[in-house]
Amino acid sequence: MNDFWLHLSDWKLLEPLFSGGRAVLLLGLGFLLGKLASRGLHSLAEKHLTLHHLILIKRISFYLIVGIFSVSALKELGFQLSVLLGAAGILSVAVGFASQTSASNIISGLFLIGERPFSVGDVIKVGSTTGEVLSIDLLSAKLRTPDNLYVRIPNETLIKSEVTNLTRFPIRRLDLEIGIAYKEDIQRVSEVLKTVANANPLSLEEPEPMIVFMGFGESAINLRFSVWATKEKFLELKNTLQAEIKIAFEAANIEIPFPHRTLYVGSQTTPFPIQVLPTEQDAEKA
């Protein structure tokens, strides 16, 4: 009989161990189910949603399932949920004060998701950084720059500063600043420029290329030549068109001037005295 009571007390000792095991099992199960659910949802919704939304759904489903299983694991360990939540309330005030930046980033991230100024895969420009958006996360967005660098931009910065989305619309305008010499006929230059744009298949016929007279510069007449291209061919057009303009200008004898400095001393003054000095070779010969 004594043995029986001894066994029973052993069982009582073992119980916390069992509940701990169950909690670990629940956590593991939650993690597994979360992974499975997020993957399943991803493949289900792949055709209907954008990459941005897919990543969002994947994350939310994973964290939700893991969260629910974690709570039941805690309950299994004997924690009381209401007490836990109350403690979390007090804790969150303390943590909130301590981590203002992170909280602001999280809130900014939510606004970014709601406003959708860009999505995953777009090319954006923030400050001096241009890159393709890899992901928009809780605290920051990640970009890949054209020189293959990984840039992390806090969501707060994205909300506060000017963001340019370079790939939102299917076509883009390329603006070239061109200076021509004062002696050139602007009409003829316009014709040469339009011929160059027409001959390049990447420059869109409509909207038509446009030439704007920008003003009389210090050493050149400044023109702006605006040509449209599809966003995919933008860089290729930028490269080919400028080279073609240079070739066409050379063929048509149109001068692209360097900065000129003309020194005028006026009619009232005597001309600059000019003296030709002998070179070293002349000196040796002498």
């Binding site: 390049n200 420059s203 869109l204 409509e206």
Partner: peptide, 20 residues
């Protein structure tokens, strides 16, 4: 002979890329 690209649409935001 590579035809030139062009844009066909009501605005520069909506439309499609075509050949001219």
């Amino acid at each position: 002979q590579r035809p030139s690209d062009t844009w066909f649409g009501q605005s520069t935001r909506e439309g499609e890329v075509c050949y001219a």
